[in-house]
Design a protein around this nucleic acid. Structure first.
Length: 921
RNA sequence: GCGGAUGUGGCGAAAUGGUAGACGCGCCACUUUGAGGGGGUGGUGGGAGUUUUCCUGUGCGAGUUCGAGUCUCGCCAUCCGCACCA
């Protein structure tokens, strides 16, 4: 009987679906384990073999955990709002919901063929109103909350209103856009509109004017993580900076917690560092410089991490967008400044990046006074100072900052060195190292002493204070697009007002075309009657990350219409134990999700402070493209090895008609009409193709479809092979040619159970050699799966099966545990054999530890231990030799010995004359 | 520039500080058959030798150690992330 994977896989996939084998419910009697994949955006292209890599790994882990007795939550869903569906809708007029549903159906079909153990009863789709009701709900909660800095927690905004009414801003320490000071009397006399404006400055979801990334081609603003090197991540369109009023989330209020709480997570160091850099904490001080425009005096605050260098300040610099620019531009410089601002403003973000090292600037005409020296220094305006960081103004110390140095050199400003013996004739001295000089009371200190001393002095004299700054900005939360969650907000007398909770979900209206309106409003401006109680509703929609920020919570309780997640479900499933996904979400989704979770935690809706305890980043699978070489001006193709003898053009050829770099010539002739009568120059009777590693994409003809692999080899082979390729975390090219090896392994595995005539498993007693093989595998699998080292586990299986095959072992005592061990990796064949062994229930209900314990018996073999192939002695493990006895034995053979056998490991390390170490496990 | 990671055969890759290259692909030889991506056996880092075998070998250079692919330091190369963040 042959291994008929097609029949087997179909049979078990329908069995799992019919029996809801992987459906789970909260069960306090069993320990839970939550394994989550980053849910996909269902694109029109469908899945290629790279996409399921992480899903396969997490599925293996889920099935393994299930065998270990855990109640495993392993759900899947779709991140279904987003730009591509909408762009497609603009082109074709089809409703994005239609194409999205079609793509989802296709994804589901492909996923099902691979045999995942998802609990599909918990599926979520972010574009489903029943789902986005809770996205909108969270937004309303953020709208009606503020962040209390002293308590480090989100609080209801009503508490802030009460505080204002009682004491004004006195005693309030809240995260806000701009610092405000007013009395209770002033607050109580404010109009509704004024109060609303004040509160907007404190809300966690708020509307504010800020420099945004505007993408004209997409017609929308984008968040920082959606822009890379001046281009939109989606579509690659140029992006420019623009001041706009937008909805934002006060993520920055959580910067400190987002940073500190990274320490407790089991994420890779590189990913944690990426987030640390993105959040970017720096310790320093804010110092006030008096600035004078003619007779007018201003207090200008700057941020610095180098308070020790105040004595070396020779000029000040403002960001072009800074509010100080207007105040400090002297009449005689007005024209020059305006020209400079106009020039800076019209640059796209890309141009700014391209000209990064070009020094530009203009003198404002004003001067500032150094608070420590009393010296007068000019105030300049330059692009190299960013409006969004610190206070948008800096003190420049050209001797010890390379950017200030370049600026000083360009505009001939003085440079005062502050460190003994440093050379600033060619470049600045940026290192925090050396002895201070020219620095008044700091002279003689090392830099490391001088920094805290200077800050202390600044605080004592009241010219400034200690300050921690973060690079993390608030997230721009509105998009001028159609295919996203509508904001549950309407404008009553121009005041942004939340919709009552019982009016959620606010459903996306139908519109005729998905373009902006003639007046430049977002597409929702086209909707008929987009109002609430006669007032206009918000017309922008939420960004992609809105729906993906809390989906892991919704899986815990996906059908609940009264809460995002019930207390019971939340306190049972708590948080994700293992999260598998790509590293591309490091500074986007993984920050927003953590923020969102912390917010809900503050308000008491969830019980865990962090959403994803352990994170594994699977690598990308690249494509391996194949080429044929056409001799120019002919229809003749020359094999790769001979191509240098001709003048040829390299042409991508569909990798699916190439096997082991050998071209299927007939298939090639049929592939495209142009090649129907192609001629070939072969080597050794074959056409050998060239190859290259490139991104997997349609245009390179290197897309390998998992369906195709399932057709030819089966899902179990696909699963094993994806794991066998190498460590899950590593990026690697897909190369179909190695797949025969794992396919061969499965066929061989099958033949341990079946020969030509039928089932051959017997009940005979296993031999010591057979037990040894099994024990080796058990030991390996237990440690490797926990370490996510699946490629070595697959290898260990191959070794074990080869050994058993050689031993002609067909004993139940060995094969039954072997089937259990293999089942996480190759579930279909395992189920089939499990059934053949006489079990009526799914193998998923088998118990792994039971078998492991049952079979980790005292090994009774006698092993020969060899020393570099020369000396020999024996260790009889059936006698359970003590460490001392082994040591005595080894003393007579003073060389290096190492032996691994069965469930027991003896390793003796000896150097001439002495035993260094003995390990017996 | 800053931060992180990686570097081992023709290829994908293994190696708690202890016989480097397991396992698989590819390749070579033999074998079997109902040769369509068939099954089996053996070989396969490099160099030398008819055989036992010897020399050499994990990016480069030092160091720690009885012993280093593995640990430390310094280079070099590649990849990823951030990038005028004061």
């Amino acid at each position: 009987m042959d291994y008929d994977f097609k029949k087997i896989e179909k049979k078990w996939q329908s069995y799992w679906a019919a029996h809801e084998t992987f459906k789970v419910a909260e069960d306090p009697s069993r320990p839970k384990f939550y394994v989550l994949d980053m849910f996909p955006y269902p694109s029109g292209a469908g899945l290629h073999v790279g996409h399921p890599l992480g899903y396969i790994a997490s599925d293996i882990y889920s099935r393994y955990k299930r065998l270990c007795g855990f109640n495993v939550l392993h759900p899947m869903g779709y991140d279904a709002f987003g730009l591509p569906a909408e762009q497609y809708a603009i082109q074709t007029g089809q409703h994005p919901a239609v194409t999205t549903m079609k793509n989802i159906a296709r994804y589901r079909e492909q996923l099902d063929r691979i045999g995942f153990s998802f609990d599909w009863s918990r599926e979520v789709r972010t574009c489903d109103p029943a789902y986005y009701k809770w996205t909108q709900w969270a937004f309303l909660k953020m709208f009606s909350s503020y962040y209390d800095n002293s308590r480090q927690s989100a609080r209801p905004i009503s508490e802030l209103v009460d505080a204002f009414a009682a004491n004004g801003t006195a005693g309030v320490d809240a995260a806000c856009g701009e610092e405000m000071t007013f009395t209770a009397a002033r607050w109580n006399s404010m109009s509704e509109k004024e109060k609303s404006d004040v509160l907007m400055n404190y809300r966690i979801a708020y509307q504010g004017t800020t420099a945004v990334n505007w993408c004209p081609a997409l017609g929308t603003v984008l968040a920082n993580d959606e822009v890379k090197e001046g281009y939109s991540v989606r579509g690659g369109h140029p992006v420019e900076q623009k001041m706009m009023k937008q909805w934002q989330l006060r993520v920055s209020a959580y910067a400190g917690r987002l940073l500190d709480d990274l320490d407790g997570l089991e994420w890779t160091d590189s990913l944690k560092d990426m987030q640390r850099n993105w959040i970017g904490r720096s310790y320093g001080a804010e110092i006030v410089f008096k600035a004078y425009n003619g007779n007018k005096e201003y207090d200008m605050t700057i941020f610095t991490t180098r308070a020790d260098t105040v004595f070396g300040v020779t000029f000040m610099v403002l960001a072009p967008e800074s509010e100080w620019v207007e105040k400090l531009t002297a009449p005689e410089q007005k024209k020059a400044v305006e020209e400079y601002l106009a020039m800076a403003r019209k640059k796209t973000e890309r141009e700014r990046i391209a000209e990064t090292r070009k020094v530009t600037g203009v003198f404002s005409g004003s001067y500032a006074v150094n608070p420590l020296t009393g010296g007068k220094v000019p105030v300049w305006i330059s692009e190299y100072v960013l409006a969004g960081y610190g206070t948008g103004a800096i003190m420049a110390v050209p001797a010890h900052d390379s950017r200030d140095y370049a600026f000083a050199r360009t505009f001939n400003l003085p440079i005062i060195p502050l460190i003994e013996g440093c050379d600033v004739s060619e470049s600045s001295f940026d290192a925090k190292d050396g002895i201070m000089c020219n620095s008044g009371f700091l002279n003689g200190m090392t830099v490391k002493e001088a920094i805290p001393a200077a800050i202390e002095y600044v605080e004592k004299t009241g010219i400034g204070h200690r300050k921690v700054n973060y690079r993390l900005r608030d997230a721009i939360f509105s998009r001028q697009r159609y295919w996203g969650e509508p904001f549950p907000v309407y404008y009553k007398d121009g005041i942004a007002t939340p919709l009552p909770e019982d009016r959620l979900p606010l459903k996306l209206p139908e519109i005729s075309t998905y373009l902006p309106t003639e007046t430049g409003e977002p597409p929702l401006g086209r909707a008929e009657d987009w109002t609430y109680e006669g007032w206009p509703l918000e017309k922008s929609t939420m960004p992609g990350f809105a729906g993906s920020s809390a989906y892991y919570l919704r899986y815990m309780d996906p059908h609940n219409d009264d809460a995002l997640v019930s207390k019971e479900a939340d306190s049972y499933w708590r948080s994700v134990d293992l999260y598998v996904g790509g590293t591309e979400h490091a500074t986007g989704h993984l920050i927003y999700s953590r923020f969102w979770n912390k917010f809900l935690y503050d308000l008491g809706y969830v019980c865990e402070n962090e959403p994803f305890r352990k994170l594994v980043n699977q690598g990308m699978i690249q494509g391996r493209s194949n080429f044929v070489y056409r001799i120019v001006n002919t229809n003749t193709f020359v094999s790769c090895g001979l191509k240098d003898q001709y003048e040829t053009t390299e042409i991508h050829v569909d990798v699916n008609i190439v096997h082991n770099d050998r071209l299927d010539i007939d298939a090639f002739r049929k592939w495209m009409p142009d090649f129907a009568d192609a001629e070939f120059i072969l080597e050794d009777g074959e056409y050998i193709c060239g190859y290259a590693i490139e991104k997997m994409s349609k245009s390179m003809f290197n897309v390998v479809n998992p369906d195709m692999i399932c057709d030819t080899y089966g899902a179990d082979t696909l699963r094993l092979y994806e794991m066998f390729l190498g460590p899950v975390e590593q990026s690697k090219p897909w190369d179909t040619k190695g797949i025969d090896g794992v396919n061969r392994f499965l066929k061989r595995f099958w033949r341990l159970f079946y020969d030509r005539d039928g089932f051959i498993v017997t009940d005979g007693k296993a031999s010591p050699a057979e037990l040894k093989t099994l024990h080796k595998l058990i030991g390996k699998e237990k440690t490797d799966i926990e370490n996510f080292s699946f490629n070595t586990t697959v290898s260990a299986f191959m070794i074990a099966v080869n050994e058993l095959y050689e031993l002609k072992c067909n004993k139940r005592e060995i094969l039954e545990p072997l089937v259990i061990l293999l089942s996480p990796f190759a579930p279909h064949i395992s189920e089939e054999l499990w059934e053949a062994l006489g079990h009526s229930e799914s193998i998923s209900y088998a118990s792994f530890p039971e078998y492991v314990e049952a079979y980790t018996v005292e090994d009774s073999c006698t092993y020969a231990v060899s020393f570099n192939g020369k000396t020999r002695f024996t260790v009889d493990l059936s006698k359970s030799m003590s460490k001392d006895e082994v040591e005595a034995e080894v003393r007579q053979n003073p060389l290096t010995a190492k032996y691994v056998g069965g469930a027991s490991i003896v390793k003796v390390i000896v150097v001439p004359g002495k035993i260094v170490n003995i390990v017996i496990k």
